[in-house]
């Protein structure tokens, strides 16, 4: 599988990246949290962002759909493009941007609504469905893609919060898929889940690969190795190393990467 991924990598090298971050700096007040990061995300592949906690990987991820806008003290410098368009440009609408760049959070956060309404929430606010049948179709498709349909099809009206942790997280993924995004950002999506639920979500990520450009923050190196084709190693706000997952894990170029992967710190 790793081999396949690296072959894919050489094939797509010439293609334009889906998202491209160039020299991105993030400050929280005076705290320089992310330092001059340049990174590309491609359609058809999963990029894992790894590194010790507090290294800036989550902060960087939240720049990609401008969720950092909601933090008053946060300031972002540099250029991030989606299909070549600067997402911090004034003519870019943050509402549309977030619909195109979906996000799944660390802790499953289903709305206190029914399963159906959770998934239908995005399509409804964006007006993606003209009729009730359309909406039903979108909801069932999203749930199917998230691998949750068979488990919940009989109880779409029961509250989303009543599901198990793993199911809730897949519901959140379904919710993100329902607005038909192009990129999906996942911020440690499995850290609150047990191993079985984690395996299911990882399998789901593998399924989704190919249709969406996916960036996943994880502190589990095994997970990064399992689900990603590219890996970026962050440390103290720096992007230390970025490349094929196989390469990073088998032949890291940087001392710090090697230390981290072999468990010397982190």
């Amino acid at each position: 599988m790793y081999k396949m991924a690296s072959e894919l990598e050489t094939m797509t090298e010439t293609r334009k990246p889906k998202m491209l971050a160039e020299n991105v700096n993030v400050f929280y007040g005076t705290n320089h949290a992310v330092k001059g990061i340049t990174l590309d995300l491609h359609q058809d592949e999963v990029t894992a962002l790894i590194g010790p906690s507090g290294c800036g990987k989550s902060t960087f991820l939240r720049c990609l759909n401008r969720m950092n806008d909601t933090v008053a003290s946060c300031r972002v410098e540099g250029r991030i493009t989606l299909d070549g368009e600067d997402i911090y440009a004034s003519r870019i609408d943050v509402v549309q941007l977030r619909a195109r760049v979906g996000m799944v959070f660390q802790k499953p956060n289903p709305f206190p609504k029914s399963i159906y309404d959770n998934v239908a929430y995005g399509p409804r606010i964006h007006g993606l469905a003209q009729t009730r049948t359309d909406l039903d179709e979108i909801v069932s498709t999203a749930l199917e893609k998230a691998g949750l349909w068979n488990e919940v099809k009989d109880r779409l009206e029961s509250p989303g919060t009543a599901l198990s942790g793993g199911q809730q997280q897949r519901l959140c993924i379904a919710r993100a898929i329902a607005v038909n995004p192009e990129v999906i950002l996942m911020d440690e999506p499995c850290s609150a889940l047990d191993p079985i639920a984690t395996a299911k979500v990882e399998a789901l990520i593998d399924e989704l690969k190919g249709r969406y450009a996916i960036a996943i923050v994880t502190h589990s190196m095994q997970q990064a190795a399992r689900v990603s084709q590219k890996t970026a190693f962050f440390h103290m706000g720096d992007l230390v190393e970025h490349g094929d997952t196989t390469e990073i894990f088998t032949a890291p170029k940087q001392e710090r990467t090697r230390d981290y992967i072999t468990g010397r710190f982190g």
Partner: peptide
């Protein structure tokens, strides 16, 4: 990935209807 029939076409975020809708939402 099993049934491509259910694949949704990419949303056209720049269609006039969508733009009008966004304007309405911001209002």
């Amino acid at each position: 990935m099993s049934d491509n029939a259910k694949e949704i076409k990419p949303t056209d975020w720049h269609s006039p209807e969508m733009n009008a809708r966004i304007k309405r939402r911001y209002r």
